[in-house]
Amino acid sequence: MIPLAHAFLLSGALFVIGLAGVMIRRNVLMILLSIELMMNAANLTLIAAAAKHADLHGQMVAFFVMVIAAAEVAVGLAIAVLLFRNEGSVDTDLVKNLKG
């Protein structure tokens, strides 16, 4: 017997922790890691929902989320490398070229 309610609560907590990481960290790589954490929280929700309804569709969506996360990491890391090469740092407070 698996307490599915607690699985949903766990994924919510993981998502909030990832969101807090995006907001408090200044290193681009740490922000990417927090985004990974949030994606995994979403995956846990999808898989727990698939277990609740005993069908496969939630798991298939989680599979596609994984594929998209892999592509996102490749592009994000390339941008981080480019940022480090141009600015000499990965601190997001120092990147002000777009006057943001």
């Binding site: 017997m1 698996i2 307490p3 277990a51 005993a54 069908d55 496969l56 798991q59 298939m60």
Partner: peptide, 25 residues
């Protein structure tokens, strides 16, 4: 509206996932 505890049967076996991937998805 959270669900209670329930017994989970393995639905995501390799055969089932492969069949879904190459037909519906």
């Amino acid at each position: 509206s959270l669900p209670g505890p329930q017994t989970v049967f393995p639905t995501g076996t390799l055969a089932a996932v492969g069949k879904a991937l190459f037909s519906d998805y």
